[in-house]
Design a binder for these strands. Structure first.
Lengths: 225, 225
DNA sequence: CGAGTGCTTGATACCCCTCAATACGAGTGG
DNA sequence: CCACTCGTATTGAGGGGTATCAAGCACTCG
């Protein structure tokens, strides 16, 4: 039995210019899948209210705001990460796409183990993030973020020694993730670049050159000289 | 069939002095329950590895540390709150009792709804906490903390206009919860006291006198004059 | 009374924010 | 192809909010 239409954007990676894509729709026997354009706020369809959703490709941020507009980005999700739609209700948080992003609804029975694992990962990441926000210095924060993003967005999942990845976040988004200002983020990045720990020419493409050094900085073990 | 011994401390609330208690043990047909003395690190028995545990009475903190000892307290749990033992494994976090505390293991089937609700609450609180750590000023942090503690620890659950509660956390623990130093916390509390927003004579017993004012401060809506 | 622990308060330092100027890249139109 | 604009990033100067360091105080316990 057909469980609904699947909307799909065939997406061709941009070479640095604009992004051509084409809209199609197909039948999905069990799974449901959606493509989302960049800079969209995700509003899950009502029947996805309690669903868990896996990101097939792309990048999402989950964020929350104070009444006066100060924003805190709570997590950055890349390929394979799982988002819980229940967290998007009642103004608890909102999710936004930073590029063309493909989300696939998981089945709460057949994907049970993956969902449980994702739940624990979400909680564990929230804990690590709190430690970062409350107790790390700016350089430690930025270093931690770079390592995290490398793990999520580098080809081969960041296992290599000198991972290189697309930075879907702008400086102000990095800042809102790390509890800093965009100027401080920029200064840290320039500093790392000057010291040869990282490299970048375009602002949205970063290579980690000294992973162990960056790890040491992230954990507060580096000499601050 | 007996599922194990239950150790129980009959606990009489102190009037301001020491805490008399008596040790007994009884049979628990289905539920399992433990009493924990103050300042104990909770190490769940192996068969509780993935259990959810409800706090019947008392106060727990969940915390995490950096290699160099900087500590971040992630949550403060009072009566009725539910702790997930899976978060205590692999150095993800550790839980510590701040007073005599009673934990009861929940049944993953019969208490299913409560567990699911608690999971979402834990995540939601982690989000709110990140917003606090990353984007709030010290006065806003302390005000938020006081309101949270009033909700959890005031008699009648803090619904009243001028809730009064026992502060199980010391100044340095408040600081580690809020990403501040104990001096800054002390200054904020003294300031609130001076302005009549709160009142305290003993350092561990606080009364909120102007709840709406404190709410406004917590949300960053108060004039900073 | 003295020692110990936790809290308060003050003086100073410094990290990061704020404000401002400039640079850079992409897109647009002449 | 170049001038212009717009959005974002970088870099610098200065100030403010917390941290740090250091007394002194309040309370408990031996």
């Amino acid at each position: 039995m057909p469980s609904g239409l699947r909307f799909m954007l065939e997406h061709i990676e941009p070479a640095g210019g604009s992004v051509p894509f084409r809209l199609t729709d197909t039948q999905a026997p069990f799974r449901q899948e959606r493509w989302v354009a960049p800079q969209m706020t995700l509003v899950p369809p009502v029947q996805w209210r309690d669903a868990a959703v896996r990101i097939g490709r792309g990048c999402l941020i989950v964020s929350h705001e104070l009444p006066d507009g100060r924003r805190q980005i709570l997590d950055v999700l890349g390929q394979g990460r799982i988002l819980f739609c229940s967290m998007l209700a009642h103004g608890t948080a909102k999710a936004r796409s930073l590029t063309f992003t493909n989300v696939e609804r998981l089945d709460e029975h057949s994907d049970r183990d993956a969902i449980e694992e994702a739940r624990q990962l979400a909680m564990k990441r929230a804990y690590e993030h709190a430690l970062l926000l409350g107790r790390k210095k700016s350089t430690e924060k930025v270093a931690t973020a770079l390592l995290d993003l490398a793990d999520q967005f580098a080809c081969g999942n960041g296992g290599q020694m000198r991972p290189s990845f697309t930075l879907y976040l702008m400086r102000n988004e990095l800042a809102d993730w790390l509890g800093l200002t965009l100027e401080t983020v920029s200064r840290c990045l320039s500093d790392f670049k000057r010291k040869g720990v990282i490299a970048f020419e375009r602002t949205d493409r970063i290579t980690i050159r000294e992973k162990t050094a960056l790890r040491a900085i992230a954990d507060g073990l580096a000499p601050s000289t």
